[in-house]
Amino acid sequence: MRVMTAEAHSGGSATRWRAAVSAEHRLHITQLVKEAGEQLVELRGVHSGTTAEVARTLLEHLSESAALIEKALVHTATAAVTAGVALEEVAGWARLSAHELAEIVAVGKDHG
């Protein structure tokens, strides 16, 4: 009871991730990170061929990985703010301005 009371007074920053973020949302974040990792693993040994071929392959995979990581960052930051962690704190961790994060969270709420 004391832990639950402390969590309620802490505004989300002391809540447990599994209690505050749905299993579906956690799974989605995990899948995005996994897919990004798989894209990066595919780059092992890709350094033979013409400069254009290697550059194209590297850039396509890196770009796709970056997009997946960006999606995971947005979903994670949105989940944290929605769970009650201070927007300014989450923005700092995500290397976003508080204004940018507020817009992202607002768009997420409108679509979900």
Rank of each mutant, 00 (worst) to 15 (best):
R2W: 15
R2T: 12
R2M: 14
M4V: 13
T5C: 10
H9E: 15
S10H: 13
G11I: 02
G11E: 07
G12V: 10
T15E: 09
R16F: 14
W17C: 07
R18D: 14
A20S: 12
A20P: 05
V21C: 05
H25I: 13
R26T: 15
L27A: 15
L27C: 12
L27N: 15
H28A: 14
I29V: 15
Q31Y: 11
L32M: 15
L32P: 04
A36N: 11
E38M: 07
V41I: 08
R44W: 02
G49L: 08
T50N: 02
T51G: 03
V54Q: 01
R56K: 02
T57Q: 04
L59G: 00
L59W: 02
E60P: 00
E60M: 03
E60D: 00
L62I: 01
S65E: 01
S65A: 08
A66C: 05
A66Y: 00
A67Y: 07
E70N: 03
K71P: 02
K71S: 15
V74C: 04
H75E: 14
H75T: 09
H75D: 15
H75L: 12
A77C: 02
T78A: 06
T78Q: 12
A80P: 10
V81A: 02
V81Y: 06
T82Y: 04
A83Q: 04
G84M: 08
G84D: 11
V85F: 11
A86P: 06
L87E: 12
L87G: 06
E88C: 01
E88I: 13
E88T: 15
E89N: 04
E89Q: 13
V90T: 06
G92Y: 07
G92P: 08
W93N: 07
L96S: 03
L96T: 02
S97V: 10
A98I: 09
H99F: 11
E100F: 10
A102P: 10
A102D: 13
I104C: 05
I104R: 03
I104S: 05
V105F: 11
V105Q: 12
A106H: 03
V107S: 06
G108F: 12
G108Y: 09
G108D: 13
G108T: 05
D110F: 09
H111E: 09
H111Y: 12
